[in-house]
């Protein structure tokens, strides 16, 4: 009884007695979620367009932040350093397409997942080799003061982060829904062989998507780096972002539809003599877990 009371009744009583504090906690929680959502966005982008679960998204965040700080430490002004870091992420995307994705076309998702795990180790090592492994401070001039709104303490930095995340989501949504490139990107996500058949060049699409994910990683790296310093643990944030990714905005229809279309494709794969073993099964598994939650954009 004591236990039940403290579990079920106590919190409610606290909420009623201190509504402002409650609101502050809720807002604080949402703000923390927003920070994670910036990392999750990178996952979604790549998963949507290439069905690859990019294990390396966190490492990309670390790598982007390290690159930015590295440039800034060498005296490059902030604006220029940002552009340079973005350019490095685009170059990285081109390299990833060449070296990693192209030889693995049409391989089962698990193979690609393995490749991204390899990429994680590479980026973590390479980034620290280039720029050193010390914890670094990143200051891009975002104010970090708290202020009072109706008794609630809000952090200005968190608000900026929320605004940045909102702008990014809006930009990507417009890109995906309204542009020719976005349409092609969604087509590739649905069925990349059919997209190839109508002339969508997978190479361009992949480079674009990985570049976009790289730039999203850079933004996430800036926000996280400014908040908690640029350090190795940035790479691990990605794993905490996973729940955000899986819960994020499923369309009610997508689950049923995806499953149906994939049974059919699985059948075809079996017939084509190639890579038949295990393909259908693993594919379904990965898809049902992640796919249904990934229709956020």
């Amino acid at each position: 009884m004591e236990v039940l009371n403290s579990l079920l009744v106590g919190p409610l009583r606290d909420i009623v007695s201190a509504p402002v504090f409650f609101a502050e906690v809720v807002v604080g929680g949402l703000m923390a979620g927003v920070m994670y959502s910036m990392v999750a966005l990178g996952f979604v982008l790549i998963f949507k367009a290439s069905e690859v679960f990019n294990f390396a998204q966190g490492a990309m965040v670390l790598f982007a932040a390290l690159t930015l700080v590295g440039f800034m430490e060498r005296g490059v002004p902030v604006g220029l350093a940002l552009l340079a870091a973005a350019a490095v992420m685009v170059a990285l995307a081109v390299a990833i397409e060449r070296v990693m994705l192209r030889p693995l076309v049409n391989q089962p998702p698990l193979t690609l997942l393995m490749a991204t795990i390899g990429l994680t180790f590479f980026l973590e090592g390479f980034g620290q080799l280039l720029w050193g492994s010390n914890v670094k401070e990143l200051d891009v001039g975002i104010p970090d003061r708290t202020f009072d709104v109706g008794g609630m303490l809000l952090n200005q930095f968190d608000l900026v982060a929320a605004a940045v995340a909102a702008v990014m989501v809006a930009l990507l949504a417009v890109l995906a829904q309204k542009t020719t490139l976005g349409r092609a990107l969604r087509a590739v996500a649905d069925d990349h062989e059919a997209a190839m058949a109508v002339g969508v060049p997978l190479k361009t699409i992949w480079v674009t998507v990985w570049s976009a994910a790289g730039i999203v990683a850079l933004v996430a790296g800036i926000m996280w780096g400014a908040k908690s310093g640029v350090q190795f643990s940035l790479s691990l944030i990605a794993l905490k972002a996973l729940p955000v990714l899986i819960l994020g905005g499923p369309h009610l229809d997508s689950g049923r539809h995806r499953r149906r279309s994939h049974h059919r494709r699985g059948g075809k794969n079996r017939r084509s003599l190639l890579g038949a073993a295990g393909r259908g099964g693993h594919r379904e598994l990965v898809r049902l877990r992640a796919g249904d939650g990934l229709s956020a954009i």
């Binding site: 349409r183 969604r186 087509a187 649905d190 069925d191 997209a195 109508v198 969508v200 059919r264 229709s295």
Partner: peptide, 20 residues
């Protein structure tokens, strides 16, 4: 086996066909 882009509307499907 058909293979339309299931999540795209019919019109979007047709427009993807004009990608090149």
């Amino acid at each position: 086996g058909r293979r339309p882009f299931g999540h795209l509307t019919c019109e979007e499907n047709l427009l993807v066909g004009a990608y090149t």
